[in-house]
Amino acid sequence: MLPRPFRVVQYRRELRDTFTLTLEPWDGPAEFSFRPGQFNMLYQLGAGEVPISISGDPARPGQLVHTIRAVGNVTGVLQRCRPGDVIGVRGPFGTPWPVAELVGRDLIILTGGLGLAPLRPVIYSVLANRPAYGNVEIIYGARSPQDLLYRRELERWRGRFDLRVHVTVDSAGADWHGNVGVVTTLIPRTRIDVLHAAALICGPGVMMRFAVQELMKKGLQPRDIYVSLERNMQCGLGLCGHCQLGPFFVCKDGPVFSYERIGPWFEKREV
């Protein structure tokens, strides 16, 4: 599968090291359909290719939105992209969050740091079809108030009467009136019917591990907990084996898995 050229139409600085690129097909308007949770391989000539989740609104397939943290070689080059620049895109790849299957259920959307980016399309989809779901609770954690991603959107969601948004940071000055403590401390405060609820979790491995423990303590079953995994990737097609985790290829069988399926392999560290 060859990369397709896309033009950067917007660059937006989110945080010190994090930015959002909005892309449109280079050869004129076209739709790029995807499902929440899927990712693309973004290619920069001379630098390489990286898997990046799609963080835009699935109902607006004319534009492709990616939020990226500059951590190394390729993401560092992507950070220097500006409107007009062209980058290669392969995708969408991977399994989506089961947004349609969860209709009628209470939802806990739990995330930390950059993990909000892959879950934002879920939030857009749920809000577009809000009456179809039960109680919806978003729990989001970051290192400090300065590290909160999509802050204005979080504030907008928080203002809604049909959504509860809990935000927490690890430490803060006196001007912060929100919660302080790790995200798992907020799980007991959610108002859900554990028998009819599902949780969608995305964030660093250590956060997801403790979140799963706390959700199970609350009474959720492994089959009702979904996690999105990150693994080093190369082909994105289930061919090279780079992303293998036990019997799974994360690029093809994931990145979204039910905890019931991935549980035994979840604790395995990447080598």
């Binding site: 740091g113 290192r143 590290d147 403590g181 798992t184 401390t185 964030g203 660093p204 250590v206």
Partner: peptide, 13 residues
Amino acid sequence: KLLKLQLVDFYGS
């Protein structure tokens, strides 16, 4: 336990 988690970079930023 919670304070230990707060000490590690729980969100990878």
